[in-house]
């Protein structure tokens, strides 16, 4: 009964939404407003205006840098939130040993074998993210996934102990901090907060630094989420 009512509501809403979206410019048409207004300006501006040949990176780190700053703050806030509300600090009972989940030797060997290559690929995505498809967050996710895989093989304790707690908090905060620093550098060198200063080599340096910080921040956040869930699960 309740489900039938929900189904009815959903169908009515979907009908209304279909009526709405069918009046949008058809997707894929190059005459759509999306392609004629702001995006066209970005494409016309090219690398000189945007600072990066990958225009998505140019939008993320230059034209709409405040959004990306907000994005790294959201993920940092979520990490702080997970640490603050999780159970792992509440009960201090003896934690069961990490080796309770035996990993098959095949999986173990393959993960160890692949780890350097995955790390290399993640680094490539981060460092070349302003030229080729990729970027800080994408590379950071690959790096985070690698760390999660390693924690399966080596046990979460080894991963947890990679950094002492105070250093860990500094590293977790790296993305919003580096972003705030570049914002101020933009004010000092180019007159506006979040502006990318000339010359081109400095701009590229800042872009790479930002991507690196975003990547490290994203990787640590992902591992933080995973380890927090894992610890809560065992408590």
């Amino acid at each position: 009964m309740r489900n039938a009512l929900a189904l009815l509501i959903v169908i009515v809403l979907a009908g209304l939404m279909m009526a709405g979206v069918s009046q949008l410019p058809p997707p894929g048409s190059p005459d759509g407003a999306v392609h004629r207004h702001v995006a066209a300006h970005y494409i016309d501006g090219g690398t000189e205006a945007g600072g990066a040949p990958n225009l998505v990176t140019a939008v993320l780190l230059n034209y709409r840098a405040l959004d990306t700053y907000g994005e790294v703050v959201v993920i940092f806030a979520a990490l702080v939130a997970v640490l603050a509300v999780g159970l792992s600090g509440h009960s201090r009972g003896p934690r069961r040993q990490p080796d309770e989940l035996p990993v098959s030797p095949v999986v173990d060997r393959i993960i160890r074998l692949l780890a350097p290559f995955i790390a290399l690929f993640a680094l490539f995505m981060i460092l070349e993210g302003h030229v080729l498809p990729g970027g800080g967050f994408q590379g950071g996710v690959v790096l985070g996934a690698l760390l999660i895989l390693l924690s399966l093989v080596l046990g979460p304790r080894r991963i947890r102990r990679m950094l002492p707690t105070p250093a860990l908090f500094w590293t977790r905060a790296i993305a919003p901090l580096v972003f705030a620093l570049t914002a101020i550098a933009g004010l000092a060198l180019a007159g506006w907060l979040f502006a990318l200063p000339e010359p081109a080599w400095l701009r590229e340096l800042i872009l790479v630094g930002l991507e690196l910080a975003i990547g490290i921040g994203a990787a640590l956040a992902l591992v933080g989420f995973y380890l927090s869930l894992e610890a809560d699960h065992h408590d």
């Binding site: 207004h37 702001v38 300006h41 970005y42 230059n62 034209y63 709409r64 840098a65 405040l66 959004d67 933009g186 180019a190 007159g191 506006w192 907060l193 979040f194 502006a195 990318l196």
Partner: peptide
């Protein structure tokens, strides 16, 4: 009003 990065609206974000 403040255009972030010096990009005039609508090309940049404005506060």
């Amino acid at each position: 009003s403040y255009p972030l990065g010096g990009w005039p609206p609508p090309y940049g974000i404005e506060l």
